[in-house]
Amino acid sequence: MISIDLTARLLHRDALILILDKPAGLPVHAGPKGGANLTAMLDQLRFGLPKPPELAHRLDKDTSGCLILGRHARPLRTLNELFAKGGVEKTYWAVVEGGPAEDVGLIDMPIARRSPERGWWMKPAEDGLPAQTDFRVLGRGDGLTWLELKPRTGRTHQLRLHCAASGFPIVGDPIYGSAPREGGPVLHLHARAVTVPILPKKPPVTAEAPPPDHMQARLAMLGYDGPISPTPPELIRPVVVEQPTVRRGLRK
């Protein structure tokens, strides 16, 4: 059984919410075959409360970064309301193959399920649910682009599908991109930051997660030279890539 010290990955803690730097490779819920999952480890984060915290939203197994948890029923209700009306600002980083022609733009593309049997597998559809993603280029080079993505809506696989259907799939995506099912790079999608207005009369809670080590080499090629978050080795072995000389990226 995998054991991960979640307390060492906390980005924020107060009486109402926790914000965790979820490692890539760890699903938030148990799958049909069981196995390690974040929900089974949340008892570590009780900090004296009678019950463990609960997830306010989810991230895909191989997406790393900021994950918000409510510590008891009242903040969970508030978080559910905030997410329902788009009140939580989420910022993602992605490394994509190719890239958009523009440096800033909006992807406005409705999304629907591909089939009833695989509800998590999505497709573009004119009669689907509205889905919008703002993007900004942070760096380009060697056929790759480092993107900042801000979803205005929260559809399943929205960022992965929006990027792939726009012609620049996320590196390491075996569903919507070109990555193989086994042996390829890990998904290069990271929940970089969140802003949570949990109390209306106080400033919003903000948190920022360093990108994971499996994204380090490609981000470095594109101009990133900041801190990196280590991934527990029992989850993912970092992929090493060559580092050709390329133009450095923009700074935020």
Rank of each mutant, 00 (worst) to 15 (best):
8 A>G: 11
13 R>D: 15
15 A>M: 09
16 L>P: 04
16 L>K: 15
17 I>L: 14
18 L>E: 08
18 L>Q: 08
21 D>M: 10
26 L>K: 06
26 L>C: 06
30 A>D: 06
31 G>M: 00
36 A>T: 03
36 A>S: 12
37 N>K: 03
44 Q>C: 14
46 R>W: 02
46 R>Y: 03
48 G>E: 14
48 G>T: 09
50 P>M: 14
51 K>P: 01
52 P>G: 13
54 E>F: 07
55 L>V: 02
56 A>M: 07
60 D>E: 11
62 D>R: 06
64 S>G: 12
67 L>G: 03
71 R>V: 10
72 H>A: 10
72 H>K: 01
72 H>P: 05
74 R>N: 06
75 P>L: 08
75 P>W: 01
76 L>N: 09
79 L>D: 05
80 N>V: 07
81 E>D: 14
85 K>L: 11
85 K>S: 15
85 K>M: 13
88 V>P: 07
97 E>D: 13
101 A>Q: 12
105 G>Y: 03
108 D>G: 09
112 A>I: 01
113 R>W: 02
116 P>S: 08
118 R>K: 15
123 K>E: 06
131 A>L: 09
131 A>P: 01
135 F>E: 00
135 F>K: 03
139 G>D: 14
140 R>M: 02
141 G>C: 05
144 L>P: 04
147 L>Q: 02
152 R>D: 00
155 R>V: 06
156 T>A: 13
161 L>T: 04
166 S>A: 15
167 G>T: 10
171 V>G: 06
173 D>T: 09
174 P>G: 06
179 A>I: 01
184 G>H: 13
187 L>M: 13
197 P>F: 08
200 P>N: 10
201 K>E: 15
201 K>Q: 15
205 V>S: 01
206 T>R: 12
207 A>K: 10
208 E>H: 07
208 E>P: 05
213 D>T: 12
213 D>I: 07
216 Q>R: 15
216 Q>S: 13
224 Y>P: 08
226 G>E: 11
227 P>F: 00
230 P>Q: 08
231 T>E: 08
236 I>W: 02
246 V>D: 00
248 R>V: 10
250 L>D: 08
